[in-house]
Amino acid sequence: MFDWKWDFTIEILPRLLDATVNTLIAAGLGYLIALIVGLIFALAQRTPLRSVTFIVRELVEFVRSTPLVLQIFFVFYVGPQIGIRLSPWTAGMIAIGLHYASYLSEVYRAGLDSVPKGQWEACSALNLSVRRTYAKIIIPQAIPAVIPGFGNYLIGIFKDTPLLSVIGVMELFQAANSIGAETYRFLEPYTLVGLIFLVISLPTAMFIRRFEDWVRGALGMKKLYAKD
């Protein structure tokens, strides 16, 4: 029955917190890859080349409709088959980065599409260069529309890092698994892992809402959550 052991909790906490650092690194690194590759995916779908648009569109759809855990296995095991040995970390970062890149490419796309057509027309009427059109007119107006999406996927990638444990990346969940295997105690490690996730993701969500309001305020737009 219920027997929570506090001394055991204190004993394993440092180990779990150490692993939390790895989890944060994995989430951060994966997100960085996703931000860059996602932008490439989004821009590739705006090129006049029909075939490129089509291929990238289908790739994004495919990655979005299939399970991340299977993709992680795929990258990790198919590499050696074709002669590329990937470490668990590398394979994990590639899989999770590409998975979230396809989600983020949709956010980029929605953001650019959210800017009214008249803005583009005004830019060409004023004869602004492509660079100035994007940098001064389009992107600043697209930012408030993309912050919630980017924020949600940042938290999403953080919560998906436990999947990296399936190929042996030593992150928070894997640390809990090892503790469970060594001590046959599961209550404390898994509960602590849940609490650590909660303690990180809830404030992050709040911070993202604040940040969105701050950006909207800075751009002279109406705040959304000011009364919270």
């Binding site: 919560k159 469970g180 599961f186 849940g194 909660l198």
Partner: peptide, 24 residues
């Protein structure tokens, strides 16, 4: 809503499968 959205599905699944038996 906050607890289930704030933690990982994998952690929840393991909790349900490995920890709930401790509560009978």
């Amino acid at each position: 809503i906050e607890v289930f959205r704030g933690t990982s599905l994998l952690v929840q699944m393991y909790w349900i499968f490995f920890v709930l038996p401790l509560f009978g």
